[in-house]
Amino acid sequence: MLTIENLCVRVGGKDILQGLSLQVNAGEVHAIMGPNGAGKSTLGNVLAGRDGYEVTGGSVRFEGTDLLAMEPEARAAAGVFLAFQYPVEIPGVNNTYFLRAALNAQRLARGEPELDSVQFLKLVREKLKILDLPDALLHRGVNEGFSGGEKKRNEIFQMALLEPKLAILDETDSGLDIDALRQVAAGVNAQRAPGRSFIVITHYQRLLEHIRPDVVHVLANGRIAASGGPELARKLEAEGYAGLPQEAA
């Protein structure tokens, strides 16, 4: 589904990703761990198409298409979703209005019929249950006045609604208490499907106890330094990143 080869990315004149390669197959959950500054969030932002990230080498193919050549909205329509580490507050843009416009823009781009407001609200109700989000949040501005946990749950709610093929969760666990973490994880697990892949970016192994990854990667110095099964995450939790092979640390 996603093939990243030798990706090099520069941000603000500094080389952050330096030859990152990664293969994610349909239905797989990949965890990306690593110390601060390793380039974890850069990877998420580059895949979603944020400005200010200069790709200096390598390629990213998503279902055979050059992902880096696409506008952010085209990536979204193709099925890429980024759950933001810091979801933006957008006062004045009503959450429901925004979500319906986004969903219909994606459907239109894929040649699917738009949902009318009745169909949309039915879908929303269905997905809200999964995240245990109060109805009232829908009537507020996007993320406006949401608590940290509500913002993260809202990201997962959007993911559930938009049903992407590839979801990138950028430190979705940061700032969550244990109950919120469980809810978010349950929301993600409910979305696991044979055709849907996840890249779960996290600092800590904690989230991975609730979302079982197929593969765990350690990102250090802008490239994948080690890969393994879930046991790698536990090892890192016990020994820290200092225990990584020297050339990778």
Partner: peptide, 26 residues
Amino acid sequence: DPGMMFYLRSRGLSQSQARAMLVAAH
């Protein structure tokens, strides 16, 4: 705000849709 623009576009809205939404909200 470029951060708001990117957020909206990352969810599938075109640049002009996102701009219209943000201007109207303002």
